[in-house]
Structure formats: C-alpha cells, structure tokens
Design a protein around this nucleic acid. Sequence first.
RNA 1: GGGGUCGUGGUGUAGCUGGUCCAACACGCUGGCCUGUCACGCCGGAGACCACGGGUUCAAAUCCCGUCGAUCCCGCCA
Length: 434
Amino acid sequence: MERVLSNELSLHVGERIHMAGWMHRIRKLGSGMVFVHLRDRAGICQIVVESPEAVASIDGLLVESVVEVEGTVVAEPQAAGGYELHDPAFTVLARVTEALPFPISKPVINAHLDTFLDHAMVGLRAPAKQAIFRLSAAAAHGFRSVLDAKGFTEIATPKILGTASESGANVFAIDYFGKKAFLAQSPQFYKQIMVGVFERVYEVAPVFRAEPHQTIRHLNEYVSMDAEMGFIKDHTTVMAMLTDVIRGILSSLADHCGRELELLKVDMPLAPEMFPTVYFPEAQEWIFEHHGEDCRNEPDLAPQHEKWLGEWAKQTFDSDFLFVTGYPMVKRPFYTAPNPADPRYSNSFDLLFRGTELVTGGQRLNSFEDYAAALEARGMTQEAVASYIETFRFGMPPHGGFAIGLERFVMQLTGLANLREAALFPRDMERLAP
RNA sequence: GGGGUCGUGGUGUAGCUGGUCCAACACGCUGGCCUGUCACGCCGGAGACCACGGGUUCAAAUCCCGUCGAUCCCGCCA
C-alpha cells in the first residue's frame, strides 16, 4: 500500500491507508484515549487512538518517535484540517524514550539561540523552523529561475584559492597538500571571467569571511547569490536586473510558500516596480538634515544610517527596498568602475532591505589599462592577480553584477532577530558545531 | 580589536538593596483523573549543592575579585 501524506487525507475518506512520520505530539486523555499528531514532510495530521491494543502499542513512546501507521480516514470537523485517522495500527520504526532538550511542538520555542543551535539537529524539526528554510530554498529557487529565464548560465567556481586576492586580510588560510591556500571570500573574479565566456552567469554558493565580527547580522560562512552580466550601459542596467530578480523571488514565494509565509506571519515586502534610489552624498546630506548626525565626510554609511534611510524609503516611497548608489571609490574594491562624471564616487550600489544591507553590486572596470592603473594606485601587483587580469587583455565587454546574501534576505523577510536563525548550522567566531 | 550585559533543575524565567531560599513559577518528564484534545484542564511526584575558584560576613543565589562561558553594540561587510 502506498504511503499517504498528511495533506492528502481528503482524497482518501473512508479508505484504509498507510502513513508514516514522527510523533509530533502525544496527548493522553484519561480512560485510555490518546491523540497522536503525526508529522511528515507535508505537514501534521491527527490520529485518534482508542482501542486498548493500539494504546498499548505506543505506550512509553515519547515525541519524535518514528512510526508507520495503518488507519481509516475520517472526515471530522473537530479535527484541525478537517480529517483524521481512526482505528490505527502502529509499527514503531524508531523508538524515542528520552525527553527532547527542549519542547519543539509549541508555537514558540522557549530556548536561547545558543541552546537551540547546540541542538539544531532536532530543533530544526519544529514546523516554524522548517518554514524558515523552506522559504530559504524557495528564494534560491526563485533567484535561479528568474535568471535562467533571462539567459544566465549557472556556474560553480572554486572555493579553494591559491591567492588571497581581493583584500587579503579577511580570508581563511588552509593547508593544501603542504601549500598555502585560502577559502574563497567571494566568487567575484571567476564570475567576471565567466562573463567573457557566457555573457551572463550566476552562482548560489557559500562564501567564507574571516572577519572577527560578533553581531546579529554577520556569519563567517554564508550563502551568496551572485550574478554577473556583460554588455551593460552602466550600473543602472545591473540595478534594473536586480530589481527584476528581487521582485521575481518575492512573487515566487507568494505563489509557492503560502503555508510558510502564514506560519511565520511574514509581512510581505513592499517592492515597487522601480526601487527608490539615492546618491551616496545626498543620503549623507539627508541624514544630516533629518537626524542631525554629520557623516558627510565619512566614506561609508553606519548601520544606524541605513536604518534611517530604510524608514525614509518606506514612508516616502512605499518601498522596503532602497538603492544607495555612488559609494566613494576609496571604500570599493579595485575592480569597481568610477562614476565618469565624478571619479571620487563609484558606479556601484548597495540595496538596503528594510534598513539593512542586502546586496552590493556595480559596474566593473573592463579594460586592461584601467585594471593596471587601479592596481598600481592601490599598491597591488599584477602578479598577485595575474590569471584574473589576463581576462581583460583579451576582450571583456562592459559588465557588472551583484551578490545577494541569502540569509540576510530571509532574516529581513521574516523579521528574524538574528542572522544565525536563517542558517541551518551557522558558523560564527565561536561556533564550529553542529 | 574596543565597549556593554548576562550565567539559577532538561528548557525559559523569578529571586539578586545578604538571613523568612536545604531556592519559586511556567514548559518538558512522571503517577493519577476526564472519550474530542489540538499552547487542553485538574490533583500529586521526581529533578538545581544557584557557571567555576577565591574573598568579605555570625550568615552569600544575592556583595567584591578572578577565571571560563554566553550574548549584544561599534568597527567591517552581505
């Protein structure tokens, strides 16, 4: 007999069926009656256990025991979902006899994040936790399908590198057969190189940052959704593409993740056709005028500034997204293209999502001469990035791209208090397990 | 790297201007009751030497110092 999932009971009313899953909740009423909530990958349904034999067969089992059950589907208005299983016969597949480190069947899990993460192996089974990662998977899927439809090719670039190229200080060094190697802090060089091959490429993969940060919005390993495209006018071409990607992800979530969005009470973001845009120095002026903080000589925005700008975008433009363009060249990596009208500023952008940095992107340099000059200006040698800049000697179109932090996206979407909650098994300065 | 906060049963907290605390409440576990529970309800029970080490005091969960652990902010970034 084929296994029926918990969301398929309505198709089998009156039939004798087989189900299997975890005993999510066990409610014993006196005089022998027991309600068992069975959890499988599709959801949760209820089993009514009344016969003394059936009650005896699950005696001593604690929640998360795995069972197979044969029973009769009954339409029952009193049951959540309207259907339940009667006259069950259980087969125990895995017996649990000790209590969980913390209860996972309550709507709210009462455990500190640190405690939760220590026991993420079982904690992640909680429906509300599952929902976070189903959304995460759906967001990555949405990213891929939008870009697939726009002629992008998915690539897989190496995560073990021979040179700590981009900035040097914040990469993890590893031993590679006796040679020094580094974990990739971004696929930046390779995705640009691959623009020379495919014009449009993307990658969804982990990146590694050795930054010693200790905040609610940083991880030392996270999933970066990178895209890079050739034949652009300037960074605004990239911003338009990014806008389509974000809007595409959101509509795909709305279409396919209704259950998760509802369970997590997600407030769907305001994402207008055109995201509002503010030029970096103007953003600083605005902050000075409206919040009295003079950051006009700073080369970057502080988290508090981004929060203010996010609120402003929402109130003024009905948008949870805000582009900040033209970050000063001094704060951008060497491959960044300057603003031709004012070379102090760059043709790059950040996308703020509800006041937190979600995406960085921009136009890149594309001529070899520009790379040679940029490296020299920063005191870097061509040798250090030899195979990368060789690309630009052999014909590279104007190009640019962006990188979305997947966990950041999910955190801001669902209103999580800590980025670690958006990673299955987060890596931070202190945590290497599980 | 700089700064702040916090460590009390398996989990989350209260107690922390020292004595009434061999530590309380909720969840979980457990014995019993209820044939419609679904964050059920009711009556019992087990489970903590209050992170660790030292000090002050007649008296320390409570005050002081140190260690370890956790956590947040800034810097940096996505």
